[in-house]
Amino acid sequence: LYEEAADFVTEVVGVHRATAEQVTEKVHDPLLAALLVGKATVAAERGVSLRIAPDSLLPDRLVDPRELVTVVGNLVDNALDAAAGTEDARVEVALRAEGRTVVLGVSDSGPGVPEDRRELIFTEGWTTKEPPSHGRRGLGLALVRRLAERRGGTARVATAETGGARFTVVLPDALTERSRDAEAPDAPAEGPPTTQEVPR
């Protein structure tokens, strides 16, 4: 079955390459982009389609990339748990910059969050999952809100267009100021004059 195996490998590699290209085109921070490519691979193994929203665009100016990796990682993990096993299972991540503020949205095709639980789920220790043999559950969403509020931002959940949950996190001052170089990326680099420019 050599030909079938070769076709399969080519298809899988092509899918991962396309996903990586889609992510890096819209998410310019390398740490966050690597996380999303990894999560897309995990999602595919669980039968869930993970995509980046078409209007996403996040520059490489994060003050603390690890902070956003923590927030995105927790929200995507929860979304994958909710979407796995549903019909047309999918998760969508939206990331955009508004000045120095990062606005993150993660939506899924899962059952959603009832209105009377939308504040409760951000409480430390609250979970719908069985407790593990060691450690505690119910820390992820509490941590997400704590990180957002520490920056003067917010973390909320509502109903997504898919009928599942849509988490929105606003992180003020999460981006550095745009550098002068970034404002004029086409400006020629300074350096020694060329041979033609040297006065004779």
Score class of each variant (00 low, 15 high):
E4A: 11
V9W: 02
T10H: 14
G14S: 09
A18M: 07
A18D: 15
T19F: 07
A20E: 13
V23C: 03
T24M: 06
K26E: 05
V27C: 10
L32C: 04
A33H: 01
A33R: 01
A34E: 11
A44W: 05
E45D: 14
R46I: 02
V48L: 09
V48H: 11
L57K: 00
L57G: 00
P59V: 00
D60W: 02
R61K: 03
V63H: 05
V71D: 03
N74S: 12
D77F: 01
D77Y: 01
L80V: 07
A83E: 06
T86R: 15
T86S: 12
E92S: 11
A94T: 04
R100P: 03
V103T: 13
G105M: 07
G105H: 05
V106E: 15
S107P: 03
S107D: 10
D108Q: 04
S109G: 08
P111N: 07
E115W: 02
E115S: 12
E115Y: 00
I121N: 06
I121A: 06
L139A: 11
G140D: 06
L143I: 09
L147K: 06
A148Q: 05
R150A: 13
R156T: 15
T162Y: 04
A165L: 08
A165F: 10
L171G: 12
D173A: 11
R180E: 01
D186V: 00
A187P: 05
A187Q: 10
A189K: 05
G191D: 03
P192A: 15
V198P: 05
P199F: 06
